[in-house]
Nucleic acid binder design. Structure first.
Lengths: 249, 249
DNA sequence: GCAAAATATTTACGATGTATCCGTACATTT
DNA sequence: AAATGTACGGATACATCGTAAATATTTTGC
């Protein structure tokens, strides 16, 4: 893709912008469009994302975006891509906080590092996370953004090359890894608080709305349920799954 | 559309239906609306779901639906509810195929039964599954459909009452259980096939679209990755997680 | 049979995704 | 420097969407 602009050579010189008068910010670009869309979604949620809105944010008509995303769905895929690009950065950053990693082989630690980076990036953009479900169901593997595929490749390589699994085993482990990380993130992001103002925990959770007769346990346990498992919980489950998938460390 | 007959006479006693000519089926009801919406989504996907469309399907104007769902979002929540109601039925059905359950305490088998029933119901309505992510992020616990909460209650009760966990422990186990089941279903539903017509597996997956240089492993492993883990995989991971969360059986 | 309540229709509005056509400013060639 | 091709963004238009408000119709209770 992106194969037509032959020159691309410098196009306005350096920055002497002055086109139409629309752009205090110079020309559009896929990066600029995606960054703006991501910002908007982070700020106001997925439902605020419309072509016109993103256009406005960029000082441009909605139709101008179609040069950089062939449809709104493509824009959504772009958001997913942006997320995975951020993940790549995060992983390249060697300083990235690496939290509680049980000892064991290097590939295991690396899987934890990936899982935790994914967790961090996802929590940083909660409104984008639903797209991880939606778009992955809509877009077949081979058509997913490159950044997504590179992430898959990275995990697969660890499993096949370093953990020494064969194709079958690596596939199973890969599925388990993805399922756990994704599911964990979703559950962590589920809305729990009903009324953030309220100081009393029970009211904050809106427990008074739940029929006490039928849901005694849930009512009692809800406050504890509302807490986050954090990276600890993520790591614990991952270890459990890896142990089962490949034998203990 | 269809607005000609003014007569509309009385619309039938008992069942001698004959109203307007809209309703071969009598009055609207929440159940009818949800069932129709679910059918439509199963048949044509989430994007085909619009108030007007559901209305048309029922021989009714779009606005008529608003008596049974206060907004489109509420309708979506209704679909989630419908899914969980089906799950309840499935679980009540003692004949429901209970597949490979490791031996161990009864509550463990029961958790497997719930997981597998959830899996079955979800795979039966793949287009609805994204809503499990979307709506759960949008609707706080206390406002979720009763059927959803009853499912939570059921799992929690098993963990606290039968497995003997305290609140903290049960919460952690509950989160692990939900994460795994949900994540597993999502990964299982991810689109893999690019071109269903194609007989050759590699082409069917559209592997020729993926850059070979950067993704050698993924290309090689994709066919195996495209296979389903099925209930076996679901059960295996669940056992691993439960072992870790409560000690081996 | 009739008033009251429940249910469905009409009409209307603003927002959305996107197809199509048009202008314009720059890059390259002459 | 003038001409020209082309990438880029704007303008306009349309079908569809969710839904508020007012209206019409049917059902129900007495």
């Amino acid at each position: 893709m992106a194969k037509r602009d032959k020159d691309a050579g410098q196009r306005g010189r350096a920055n002497g912008r002055r086109a139409g008068d629309r752009g205090h910010y110079g020309r559009l670009s896929r990066e600029r469009v995606l960054a703006t869309a991501l910002e908007l979604v982070d700020r106001e949620g997925l439902s605020a994302l419309s072509m016109r809105r993103v256009g406005a944010e960029l000082g441009v008509e909605a139709m101008a975006l179609y040069r950089y995303a062939r449809s709104k769905d493509a824009l959504l895929d772009g958001l997913v891509e942006a997320l995975y690009l951020e993940l790549e950065d995060d992983l390249a950053d060697t300083d990235a906080t690496r939290v509680p990693v049980a000892d064991g082989p290097a590939w295991r630690a690396e899987l934890h590092r990936i899982a935790q980076a994914t967790y961090r990036v996802a929590l940083a953009h909660p409104h984008v996370v639903p797209l991880l479900a939606t778009r992955m169901l809509a877009v077949p593997l081979a058509r997913r953004p490159l950044a997504v595929l590179k992430d898959h490749e990275r995990v697969l390589t660890l499993l096949e090359e370093q953990a020494g699994l064969d194709e079958k085993g690596a596939s199973a482990a890969f599925r388990a890894f993805s399922s756990w990380v994704l599911g964990y993130i979703f559950v962590e992001l589920r809305a729990m608080v009903d009324n953030p103002e309220e100081p009393d925990p029970a009211f904050r959770l809106g427990l008074h709305r739940m029929p006490a007769q039928e849901l005694p346990r849930l009512r009692r346990t809800a406050p504890s349920l509302a807490e986050h498992g954090g990276v600890r919980g993520l790591a614990a489950g991952l270890d459990a799954l890896l142990d089962a998938e490949l034998g203990r460390p």
